[in-house]
Design a protein around this nucleic acid. Structure first.
Lengths: 128, 128
DNA sequence: CTAACTATATTCATAGTGAATATAGTCTAT
DNA sequence: ATAGACTATATTCACTATGAATATAGTTAG
């Protein structure tokens, strides 16, 4: 039924709601990009290869387009299969700004919890 | 000023996957608690009244019990309606330890992204 | 008795995700 | 040319987590 902490650790640390979306907005902030190519760039935000789900990436990009955060068009001439190239919109940049604020709030809340944890656990250790 | 990107801000900042569960484990770390009473205590972790969904709270507690992180029993004699009182287990404490590590990773990833954002946007502002 | 309050629980609908699979064009070696 | 590897995008299925609304029921105050 439960395997102690293993239960929890199967739960992947990178799984943070909407985090991928914000990373994509930032990557597209000042240059266009396409799905497959963005995968490599995402490694700078801690998405290691097995972590990143390709279907999630494409799904997210299409959703962002539907919401008007990016626009896309098929790359005209290039080598290899055609690419759907995404460009950020003004709305997308505003959305990024707002998301960064939310992420800062999340960070604050995590810090509060971690602080309370450290205090509680260390005081627990002092108590014989 | 602007509406803080109204689109995005409908998406509530407190909504962080599994965060409630970790807060509950910490609150129960050294003393028992029951659902309704935990609501007030959760305010110290940034759950303001309208933010906290009561059904989510009870659902989460029952799930935690099913997973062996807490045990519960009905409070014997007291005033008011009977309460289901929860107590953390050893497994629950281990689970909390593991979750705190994950939260630290999340915090690090948020910091990386926020740092990259600040850098990109400020360089954007300097550029004429 | 009735209304307000405390306390717990369940149902319904939705969002986000991962795994697996589908589709299809391009390139390389034979 | 053609088979196989690779690039690139997209969809389906199953599952988890959540919010809103509602249900259930005992307790207390007027």
């Amino acid at each position: 039924m439960r395997d102690d902490a293993s239960d929890c650790c199967e739960y992947k640390p990178h799984h943070m709601e909407r985090f991928l979306e914000v990373c994509l907005l930032l990557l597209l902030y000042d240059e266009v990009g396409y799905g497959y190519g963005l995968i490599e760039q995402l490694s700078s935000f801690g998405f290691s290869e097995p972590d990143l789900n390709v279907s999630t990436l494409y799904r997210t990009l299409r959703k962002m387009e539907k919401e008007g955060l990016v626009t896309s068009l098929w790359e005209s001439g290039g080598q290899g299969p055609r690419r759907r190239v995404y460009e950020i919109t003004t709305s997308g940049r505003q959305n990024l700004d707002a998301w960064v604020k939310i992420l800062k709030m999340r960070r604050t809340r995590i810090e509060t919890l971690v602080g309370a944890y450290d205090k509680k656990v260390s005081s627990k250790n002092v108590e014989q």
